[in-house]
């Protein structure tokens, strides 16, 4: 099976203090991956990297067969196929429907099709009929499910979920877990991080284990590819500063 992602010699962070140091990682198409490891192992950082939101200091990323160079237009195109849902997601100060419409509009999806996708996505997360609700008036659990629906409506090739089932009520847990198992069967690649060590096995997910910013033994076979040896030298563009501690790749 073809990999959607191949990472080679990725280093993120400065000096000897790397936040992330991944010699090799391949992510195959249509597979459910779980990302485990203690706090501070670099799970969220890896998800940000894969979402093309955080740039590495060095190394090469392939999406499919193409090497990522980090130009703006390229990044925008890639991000339209990869969507990240954070553990504490941000909803725009607007209605639920407009939140979901945001990404659809950017993809040129309009009218009937847009409305259908919105209501379908809300149904999928068990929030049918929530279109007109104001984002600021939702409960914490509802916010997380709307954020998930907002990503699902875009039907991304890769869905990245940061702790989607942490601190969640029982009903929501079942909805999310059902989606995690069913979506890869429709061809979506999902990587989710979790602290629940039984969850990967329960959901039939492959496990990527991390510690101190590095990968521990992965349970999947690494398939060596031609371009591994010829990793090109990339000069990454300057990052966008979002706060003192976090940088956005623009």
């Amino acid at each position: 099976m073809k990999p959607v992602f191949s990472l080679q010699n990725i280093q993120l962070g400065r000096g000897n203090n790397f936040n992330l140091w991944i010699e090799r990682l391949e992510v195959r198409d249509g597979v459910l991956y779980s990302l485990t490891g203690p706090n501070g192992a670099g799970k969220s950082t890896l998800l940000w990297l894969l979402a093309m939101l955080r740039r590495p200091e060095s190394g090469a990323i392939y999406f499919g067969d193409t090497l990522v160079h980090g130009t703006r237009s390229e990044l925008k195109k890639l991000r339209q196929q990869i969507t990240l849902v954070e553990q504490a997601p941000y909803l725009f100060d607007d209605t639920v429907a407009r939140n979901i419409a945001f990404g659809l509009r950017l993809r040129g999806i309009q009218g009937e099709e847009r409305n259908n996708r919105i209501s379908q996505a809300l149904e999928d997360v068990g929030l049918g009929g929530f279109e007109k609700r104001k984002a600021r008036e939702l409960s914490g659990g509802e916010v997380r499910r709307v954020a998930l629906a907002r990503a699902l409506a875009l039907r991304p090739k890769v869905l990245l979920l940061d702790e989607p089932t942490a601190n969640i009520d029982e009903a929501s847990l079942q909805i999310v877990e059902a989606l995690l198992t069913s979506l890869p069967q429709q061809g979506m690649t999902i990587i989710f991080s979790t602290h629940d060590l039984d969850q990967p096995e329960r959901l039939g997910a492959e496990v990527i284990r991390m510690r101190d910013g590095k990968l521990e033994a992965a349970t999947y076979p690494a398939s060596p590819r031609q371009h591994v040896a010829t990793a090109e030298k990339i000069t990454w563009p300057r990052p966008l500063k979002i706060s003192e501690s976090s940088y956005l790749w623009l």
């Binding site: 939101l53 925008k76 991000r79 990869i82 945001f102 979002i242 956005l248």
Partner: peptide
């Protein structure tokens, strides 16, 4: 600081994210 990253991961370019 999640505003920009949220807009971008939903597929917005830098100008569209700035607008958001």
């Amino acid at each position: 600081n999640r505003i920009m990253s949220t807009a971008m991961t939903l597929g917005a370019g830098s100008l569209q994210s700035g607008w958001q």
